[in-house]
């Protein structure tokens, strides 16, 4: 069973190279952007020297905050890319095999429909975020190395300015937590996309997204309530995992966080609150229902032969 899953997931990676090509392209863009920035900024010699002096005189906490900010922006970029890949992947996963009729070959092998659909769910839910995270981490390292080289070329002390202040463990562990938690939070969408991909005869993208807008609209018009609007839109943006609401933003200062003299993203994550949130579990049940329906459709539908 587990051996089968590994093989099935490997097949998904063969079929959908976008799973690693998209984050690699993001990495290339980020690093190219950084390099261009470094070359451009280097032209302003005095300003650069001044900047390095400021950096050297700033506190460790401020430098950590600054580097965390940069890493967070980069991570966010990768996360957005992963969300897009996840959506397109889940919409294609059970659609392409019917379109090219390869489903008949896959079903001639001793693999159940449940195993096949499960491998696609696992790929969307875990493989895509984790592959993206690995490439994001490599990009973080590349950014720090490139920045160090640049700082040294400008006569700064890279080990002090960059490495001693880089909160790598914190950034990576918190990214890992988010990379596991966010797909779980958004899993009802993945389940829905898989079901549409198993059902639709054409245009899976349209078929998946149209109801997301039409259903809340119809609800509002018929009953005047906002259940689907809240479930689809409001809920998505409010995962109960971050305590960022507690951060105080002073106008001219870097944000200070609860906890004062340490700067940790991980400390802002409320894992217990997240796991005990009924909304998380409700979402995962909805996902399970959609996926069960997708398995049922793949198993019972006849038109493909």
């Amino acid at each position: 069973m587990i051996g089968h899953q590994m093989t099935l997931i490997r097949r998904e990676l063969w079929e959908h190279p976008a799973i690693y090509v998209a984050p690699l392209a993001t990495a290339a863009l980020v690093l190219l952007g950084l390099l261009t920035g470094q070359v451009t900024v280097s032209a302003f010699g005095e300003a650069v020297d001044f900047g390095i002096v400021i950096a050297q005189n700033s506190t460790e906490l401020q430098r950590t905050a600054a580097i965390t900010g940069v890493l967070l922006i980069v991570t966010t970029l990768f996360a957005l890319g992963a969300l897009i890949v996840m959506a397109f992947y889940s919409l294609d996963a059970l659609y392409a095999e019917r379109k090219d009729k390869s489903i008949l070959f896959w079903r001639s092998l001793p693999i159940t429909d449940a195993e096949s659909v499960l491998s696609k769910l696992l790929t969307a839910l875990f493989v895509i975020p984790l592959v993206t995270l690995l490439i994001a981490i490599a990009t973080h390292l590349a950014i720090l190395v490139m920045t160090s080289i640049w700082v040294m070329m400008q006569g700064g002390d890279a080990s002090h300015l960059v490495w001693s202040s880089a909160p790598l463990a914190d950034a990576w562990v918190s990214s890992l937590v988010l990379a596991v938690a966010m797909p779980m939070w958004l899993s009802p969408f993945i389940g829905w996309f898989l079901l549409v991909s198993a059902l639709t005869k054409r245009a899976p993208l349209l078929m998946a997204f149209m109801p997301l807008f039409v259903v809340p609209l119809l609800e509002k018009m018929s009953t005047g309530t906002y259940f689907f609007y809240n479930a689809i839109f409001v809920r998505s943006f409010l995962p109960p995992i971050a305590r960022f609401g507690d951060i105080s933003w002073d106008s001219n200062e870097l944000p200070t966080m609860p906890g004062g003299d340490s700067f940790s993203v991980l400390a802002q994550l409320d894992l217990a609150g997240f796991i005990s949130s009924p909304s998380l579990w409700a979402g995962m049940i909805v996902c399970a229902l959609f996926v069960t329906a997708a398995i049922y459709v793949r198993r019972y539908r006849d038109e493909s032969y």
Binding site: T7, R10, R11, K101, L104, P110
Partner: peptide, 29 residues
């Protein structure tokens, strides 16, 4: 399916797969 093999009347091998990948896959499953 462990004891039956079949070929359907329409060509059904996935077009994106490489021959050695296909053989690996069938061997593993």
């Amino acid at each position: 399916m462990q004891n039956i093999s079949f070929i359907a009347d329409v060509a059904v091998l996935p077009r994106w797969i490489r021959v050695h990948q296909l053989l690996d896959f069938v061997e593993a499953t």
